[in-house]
Design a protein around this nucleic acid. Structure first.
Length: 557
RNA sequence: UGCCCGGUGGUGUAACGGUAGCACGACAGAUUCUGGUUCUGUUUGUCGGGGUUCGAAUCCCUGCCGGGCAGCCA
């Protein structure tokens, strides 16, 4: 999609206006601020593409900043994976990765300033008491009995909180705003809580940690972020964001909110993804069925296709549910252009060519990618005994079936026209062999007499093909909104058939080229990607996405 | 029931007071050595009611519907 084609969604509009008005000297600085408490998913990709994309469009850059203000849930494994995923998606952040924890000293200084202004106080209310004092969305809260403490007393108490004199949960530092505000977040929100926890970066330097609402705006301001883009649920936090920055008279970063991505037949919360990984419903965060970046990567998705998806879904403030078909379209669209074709038989049945010489092997030329002539050709061995898909043969086919049947002639891709004459069955009546004859004059796939066939099917040599494990994935859940039910756990909707492992027969040349991460199209079936589990001695492929199948639709009618 | 934010075909979006368009999906056809790709066509929409205006998806009022807010999570 070219620059001009990109819709001017409301975030682009705001930034474009700011730049043309000369706000911040026309500079644009955004940030991507993940909390390192889980792996990134496709919803984060939307945010990444937005933040990095829009900054770049207007000549700006983007900071990668880890919002590590809660040491209980965060760790370096996540920090590492997040950096990998952002890079893999094709984005480059400004300078070194940044960490909220780098600013703990500054944030602490700022809070002393707030206390001195009379805008913050130490509160001894317990969590339960605070809940009672806070009121509800429809009823105002009540002022804390500790609100009237003197500035000196607050400074002393806050110092002692920092020094570790008090146990977890015994005190908080709170902003003094308005307990009667209709906005719950303005009812004297907690700024700092006591947490005697070891932080993966600051160790035991701190036993008080800043809350999101206090920390995030300051992180933005300290870095002079011009446009702080976040999701809709933070909309009601914006008055507090502005309150902190205005009270401290620091760089006025501005927060803008857009609707997070919801995708059908999956879940998008880190908590739920963690649950799936930890409880073994999937093999881990990078299981190819997961909507994580690492899962999609392992599944065979390309960064280009994910970026394109993030562009076409748009950016609005409307809560929507995006059709998974759109994501699949994006990956097919890209893979169609770039992947080599190869023949792989997923559910093999043997074909014997009764008039083909025993022991003869022909190396036939096959086109690698009809969409890209520069992809060249390869040799495929053709022999007397072949495998084809079981579904490509029917003993008593309906009229619309264009594949092999008794008395029917079809083209074997890049090879010959073959006509079926007979089948061999086992004791149960199951077909175990299909007997055909070939027409030597049709070598290469065309008949010199101009004869046409309705169907072309793929095949591999029984003798020369190799085996590979193929993992066929289906949607992880059986319903479009697995987490919609209030009384039903989302795991009740897990699809028991989301993974099917089969043994396929594939073209021998794949043994040489299919390094883990190698993507290709198995003709007529789908796009596949060699898994990290794959090795030269045991090839393993993941099905990224099946090809569109208009025959499947006809058949199922 | 308080406050905040939303509502355009089946889905996702565009239209910035002036012809409701695009993409995905679905359906039909053409092309094709992949029932893939490509191409063509069809289908379906401004939440309701008032107003302002020559003219409203757009501005105003009102109703309805959906989402968010009561962590010492982010």
């Amino acid at each position: 999609m070219s620059q001009e084609d990109k819709p001017l969604h409301f975030i682009r509009q705001i930034i474009s206006d700011d730049v043309s008005e000369g706000k911040n000297e026309g500079k644009v600085l955004t940030r991507f601020p993940p909390e390192p408490n889980g792996y990134l998913h496709i919803g984060h990709a939307k945010s990444i593409c937005l933040n990095f994309g829009v900054a770049k469009e207007f000549g700006g850059v983007t900071n990668l900043r880890f919002d590590d203000t809660n040491p209980d849930t965060e760790n370096v494994e996540y920090v590492k994976s997040i950096q990998e995923d952002v890079k893999w998606l094709g984005f480059e952040w400004n300078g070194e990765p940044l960490f909220a924890s780098q600013y703990f000293d500054k944030m602490h200084q700022f809070s002393i300033e707030l206390i001195k202004q009379g805008k913050a106080y130490v509160c001894d209310l317990s969590m339960d008491e605070l809940r009672a004092y806070r009121g509800t969305p429809t009823e105002p809260g009540r002022e804390s009995p500790y609100m009237g403490r003197s500035i000196d007393e607050n400074i002393d108490l806050f110092q002692r909180m920092k020094n570790g004199e008090f146990p977890d949960g015994s005190k908080t530092l709170r902003a003094r705003i308005d307990m009667a505000s209709p906005n719950m977040h303005m009812r004297d929100p907690a700024l700092y809580r006591i947490k005697h926890s070891n932080h993966y970066r600051t160790g035991n330097d701190w036993c008080i940690y800043p809350m999101y609402d206090y920390a995030h705006c300051l992180e933005d301001s300290i870095e002079c972020i011009t446009h702080s883009i976040c999701t809709l649920e933070f909309e009601v936090h914006r008055p507090l964001y502005d309150w902190v920055l205005e009270s401290l008279d620091v760089f006025p970063s501005r927060q803008y909110e857009f609707a997070r991505l919801n995708l059908g037949y999956t879940v998008m919360s880190k908590r739920k993804l963690l649950q799936l990984a930890e409880e073994g419903h999937v093999s881990g965060w990078d299981d190819p069925r997961m909507p994580t970046i690492s899962g999609l990567r392992r599944r065979g998705y390309t960064p280009e296709s994910i970026r394109n998806f993030c562009e076409v879904i748009g950016v609005t403030k409307f809560n929507s549910l995006t059709d998974i078909a759109l994501l699949e379209h994006c990956v097919r669209d890209h893979l169609n252009k770039v992947t080599h074709r190869t023949m792989a038989v997923l559910d093999p049945i043997k074909v014997v060519i009764t008039n083909y010489p025993e022991g003869q092997v022909e190396e036939l030329d096959a086109v690698n990618n009809p969409e890209d002539e520069s992809a060249g050709t390869r040799k495929v061995p053709f022999t007397r005994e072949l495998y084809i898909e079981r579904s490509d043969f029917m003993e008593d086919p309906p009229r619309k079936f264009f594949r092999l049947g008794i008395g029917r002639e079809v083209r074997f891709r890049w090879a010959y026209f073959l006509t079926c004459h007979d089948v061999v069955k086992d004791a149960e009546g199951e077909i175990i062999e299909i007997h055909c004859t070939y027409d030597p004059l049709t070598k290469g796939g065309d008949a010199p007499d101009g004869r046409k066939v309705k169907g072309t099917i793929h095949w591999v040599s029984a003798e020369k093909s190799i085996t590979a494990e193929v993992r066929l994935y289906d949607r992880l859940f059986t319903v479009e909104k697995p987490d919609a039910g209030k009384d039903k756990d989302f795991k009740e909707f897990l699809n028991p058939d989301s993974l099917q492992v089969i043994e396929a027969r594939i073209e021998p040349h794949l043994a040489k080229v299919a390094e883990p991460g190698y993507r290709c199209q198995f003709e007529r079936t789908g796009y596949f990607c060699a898994d990290p589990d794959s090795s030269p001695s045991k090839l393993v492929f993941n099905r990224t996405v099946p090809l569109r199948d208009s025959w499947g639709k006809v058949k199922n009618k």
